[in-house]
């Protein structure tokens, strides 16, 4: 997990539920309430960190480092993400 560098190409924030699986995204948790945000932070997903999306849907499965997290649809819809590495680039790499 590395802190994302924001560039001109990844400014669009989309709900995590709309991101394609297999891509890497930067997480934005500022729209979550404090309780949910601190829970996610404690589990290793905090504002600005980069995660890989293993599966979208319910649950949305994220990988950060060697940890895999399942996030229910309700919370995933409130987490915003900006694409850093697309699924196709990830596959090529």
């Amino acid at each position: 997990m590395t802190t994302a560098t924001t560039t001109a190409t990844d400014q669009v924030r989309t709900p995590l539920t709309l991101c394609p699986s297999g891509c890497r995204v930067t997480i934005h948790t500022d729209e979550l309430d404090a309780g949910d945000r601190s829970m996610l932070e404690a589990m290793g997903v905090d504002h600005g960190c980069e995660v890989e999306i293993c599966k979208v849907g319910s649950p949305c499965i994220l990988r950060t480092g060697s940890t895999r997290l399942g996030v229910g649809r309700e919370v995933a819809a409130r987490i915003k993400a900006t694409l850093t590495v697309s699924a196709s680039s990830q596959m090529l790499s």
Partner: peptide, 8 residues
């Protein structure tokens, strides 16, 4: 309810 966020 506690948000459904679980470590897998």
């Amino acid at each position: 309810s506690r948000p459904m966020v679980l470590e897998l």
